[in-house]
Amino acid sequence: MGHLSPLTAAELAAIYDRDPSPSVLRLLQEIRRLHETIRRADQVRRTIGNEGVFYVPAVVWECFVRELEAEPCLRDLPTPRQQARIDEHLRRLEEWRKNGRKFE
């Protein structure tokens, strides 16, 4: 199953309007934080550019590195549910290999 389509700001606001709970508010705050990280990544990408310009102002780069290093998804262990999905995927791969299927 692939990812769902991204939600627009209006769709996110409508979700909160339907359920203005502290939990939904916290999730929306996390989405905003991640959006800001993506915007800064885009700022770094645009600064580096496609024309061989590889200079990123130190303050931008240091801020970006700090933000990435603080991201839980880069350092947290998988949750039990995530680990179960990983294990199932690895089990299927092993089964396919045993049956002579190759991956490229």
Rank of each mutant, 00 (worst) to 15 (best):
R18K: 13
Q43S: 06
F54W: 15
E88M: 07
E67K: 04
R46Y: 08
A13T: 10
V65Q: 07
V59G: 08
L7D: 01
P80A: 01
L34I: 04
R18S: 09
T8V: 01
T8P: 04
L93K: 13
R75I: 13
I48E: 05
R32Y: 05
R18M: 09
S23I: 03
V60M: 12
Q83K: 15
R40T: 09
S5N: 10
V65N: 00
S5Q: 12
G49K: 05
Q29N: 09
L4C: 06
D87A: 15
I86S: 02
R101E: 08
Y16R: 14
G2N: 11
Q82R: 11
A10I: 03
R66M: 10
V60C: 01
S5W: 07
Q43A: 10
C73K: 10
V24Q: 03
E11N: 00
Q82T: 06
V65K: 14
W61S: 05
Q29V: 10
I38E: 04
P57H: 09
L74N: 06
R91I: 02
I86V: 10
K102L: 10
A70I: 02
E67V: 12
T47K: 12
S5C: 10
E95L: 07
R92G: 03
C73Y: 12
T79S: 15
R39Y: 14
K98R: 15
D87Q: 12
I15A: 11
L25M: 06
V60I: 15
E94D: 09
V65G: 00
L93I: 13
F64G: 00
H89F: 15
I38C: 08
E104Q: 04
A9R: 09
W96S: 08
D42W: 07
K98P: 01
C73G: 04
Q29H: 13
E104K: 02
L7C: 05
R92H: 13
S5K: 14
C73L: 09
A10E: 13
A13V: 06
T8M: 02
P6C: 04
A70S: 14
Q43R: 11
P20F: 02
R75W: 02
R75A: 13
R33G: 05
V24P: 00
N50Y: 05
L28D: 01
D87V: 02
C63R: 06
A84E: 11
P57R: 11
R46G: 09
R18N: 10
I31K: 08
V44L: 06
L28E: 05
I86F: 05
K98H: 11
N50L: 12
R32K: 11
K98Q: 15
R85Y: 08
R91D: 06
F103P: 00
L25N: 03
C73R: 13
G2M: 07
L7Y: 07
R45G: 07
Q43N: 04
L34W: 06
Q82W: 00
H3C: 02
D17S: 11
V56P: 01
T37W: 01
A9F: 08
R66G: 12
W61A: 14
P6W: 04
D76Y: 00
A14P: 01
V24D: 01
C63G: 10
R92L: 11
G100W: 00
H35I: 05
I86C: 02
I31E: 08
A14Q: 11
E104I: 03
R46Q: 11
